[in-house]
């Protein structure tokens, strides 16, 4: 980060610290140069015409035939400008789709981090179970996918150095995938106005080398992973009463469910992603699975967002053969 007294403050540019940053910067500077030229052209034209044709000047003002209307000239200067700017539209759209509908990363492993935004703090949940408030430790070069939800109003996860921003909506999951490429400490801001201490809802993203991150995680002490927490909650909330394979109640088997298409009672099918699992826990009658009675009670208000994320992590970890909790 730039220290307060740094002379760069005047023409400050955000650092480029994620895989998409430099590509966005190229687009930005290409547009700055193009638009700068247009402004310069208009400024020069205004200046020249103002001076040459000021009242009383001896400039040549013989009215030409097309002095008051020249459609070809109008088309001449508007169509090229439009086509030129549509290049920026396409360039921006491609980058945008890369950011929000990202191709699977080369080495395949994506670090899933759960993010819960609540009025005026950020809560992070690492796959290893380590939990952080406002600060987020990441490994350089490691692709990260944030699964974010809010407990109250709309917030927005914004790291200027990574050129990423995504609103965090209450009761729905929004996702954001990026890859830090530079070691260092970067600002985290909440960008969507969320009330009294909106300007205090900030933090730091600390990007370290992978071994340094592993060292930091170990130093956080022995913590149960979300899967282990999820398994414990699976029993304590009585989910296993119906959903364990040996239970007498006719309820869907959750093994290997995550990611599979689920036929619903109303004939449509939906993919069992995190949103489906969350809604099935808190609003079970919203999407009833086909062939099962809608008898599941709603746990709305009993299970917190953080516990739902742990249960989801546990259900996600139930592969085909492993059906009873470890």
């Amino acid at each position: 980060m730039i220290e307060a007294g740094d002379p760069w403050q005047l023409l400050m540019f955000p650092e480029a610290a994620s895989s998409i940053s430099s590509r966005v910067d190229h687009l930005f500077w290409a547009m700055v140069v193009t638009c700068g030229l247009v402004v310069l052209l208009v400024f020069v034209l205004l200046l020249v015409f103002s001076i040459r044709y000021r009242r009383g000047s001896r400039a040549d003002r013989t009215p030409s035939a097309r002095l008051n209307s020249n459609h070809w000239l109008e088309i001449g200067w508007s169509v090229p400008v439009l086509v030129g700017f549509l290049v920026f539209f396409a360039w921006g759209a491609v980058l945008y789709l890369d950011l929000y509908d990202p191709p699977a990363p080369a080495d395949g492993n994506v670090r899933e981090i759960n993010v819960i935004a609540k009025q005026w703090m950020w809560k992070f949940q690492h796959p290893e179970g380590v939990r952080e408030i406002n600060d987020l430790h990441l490994a350089v070069g490691q692709t990260v996918r944030l699964r974010m939800t809010s407990q109250d109003v709309i917030h927005s996860f914004f790291v200027p150095a990574f050129r990423i921003k995504q609103d965090v909506l209450p009761r729905t999951y929004t996702e954001l995938q990026f890859t830090p490429t530079k070691v260092g400490r970067f600002h985290l801001f909440c960008a969507e106005y969320c009330g009294l201490q909106h300007s205090g809802m900030t933090g730091e993203v600390v990007v370290m080398s992978p071994p340094a991150l592993q060292g930091w995680l170990d130093r956080q002490g022995q913590t149960r992973t979300p899967e282990q927490d999820g398994a414990r909650l699976f029993r304590s909330y009585g989910c296993s009463g119906c959903h364990a394979p040996d239970s007498s109640v006719h309820a869907p088997n959750l093994a290997g469910l995550y990611g599979k298409p689920v036929p619903l009672a109303n004939g449509t099918t939906v993919r069992a992603d995190a949103q489906y699992i969350r809604d099935s826990i808190l609003l079970p009658s919203k999407q009833v699975a086909a062939g099962y009675p809608a008898i599941m009670p709603s746990f709305q208000g009993q299970i917190s967002e953080a516990d739902v994320l742990k249960l989801t992590a546990y259900i996600q970890s139930l592969t085909e053969q492993e059906t009873d909790p470890p």
Partner: peptide
């Protein structure tokens, strides 16, 4: 036009 460009608006929104 800058903020209408999708990738730049991600950085510039709000």
């Amino acid at each position: 036009i800058f903020v209408a460009t999708l990738a730049l608006d991600v950085q510039m929104h709000d």
